[in-house]
Nucleic acid binder design. Sequence first.
DNA 1: TATTGTTATACTCTATAACTATA
DNA 2: TATAGTTATAGAGTATAACAATA
Lengths: 150, 150
Amino acid sequence: MIRITAKNAAKQDFMSLMRQLVRTYQAFAAFDAASYRNMDLTVSQADVIFTLGNTAGLTFKDIGAQTLITKGTLTGVIDRLENKGLVKRIDTAEDRRCTQVVLTAKGKRMFGEVFPKHVARLRTRFDRLTVAERRDAQILLVKLQTIFSS
Amino acid sequence: MIRITAKNAAKQDFMSLMRQLVRTYQAFAAFDAASYRNMDLTVSQADVIFTLGNTAGLTFKDIGAQTLITKGTLTGVIDRLENKGLVKRIDTAEDRRCTQVVLTAKGKRMFGEVFPKHVARLRTRFDRLTVAERRDAQILLVKLQTIFSS
DNA sequence: TATTGTTATACTCTATAACTATA
DNA sequence: TATAGTTATAGAGTATAACAATA
């Protein structure tokens, strides 16, 4: 027997919100990953290309900080992107411990031509929301994020 | 030079919402995964235990449908849970192609005692939101989910 | 013929830690 | 001593497809 108390109702409340966050993210991630598969990229690889786009190159440290990929893993991800001819490593003169990673011409083409198509595909979906809904969703997602940070 | 046009503003708008969804989920997932690591479970394994909790057992097909883990992968996940003594396979009489997966006594203890502590830890965070914020977040997440489904 | 779960393969990511070369 | 990136190891999930047993 389950008693319907204020406490149980509140518990139900947050559990359902939590599950909804997961379901929503999974729906987005599945939609997103389908594009990357067409580009023959994994999610991590696409993440790196996206991060490098519109920059003059970033160090492993910078990329790791932005993508949340740890350095050991990042070496492998960059290796695979380099094998695909999408990025290249460049030694830096200032601090010879650092390595810059930059997009090659092929990588720039992917970021400049293929990615925009992906973005357009995403956009058609987000357009189904009103401007107010997008604004409110953004505000609430920020609030949701803050409760888990720190 | 970047022109600030209505089109660019709208693009910026949805891209930023998209990134926020990812960041929020990542913040939650990092918080969540820390608990599972303490229980010596991976996210997938915890997902299965959670799914099996309060049921009399589910088939591979059922578990796969609820967790989005494909059958080939699920065999391995269940193997590892079985090795840890948390679940067991039971052949079904009705349809001998199906296998039921049920929690063992140890698995029930984890679901009944360890998981609630995890839930309580999550709850302290969700309590930082007001009831209205949780309700609004839920509504907007459902809307966000629907734009990616179908 | 279709479905359920298993097996096999090859790849990718994760966590951890030791290692190198620089600073 | 500390930092940036590499290497090594073991484990875990993913995708794909072929397979056996059953319906």
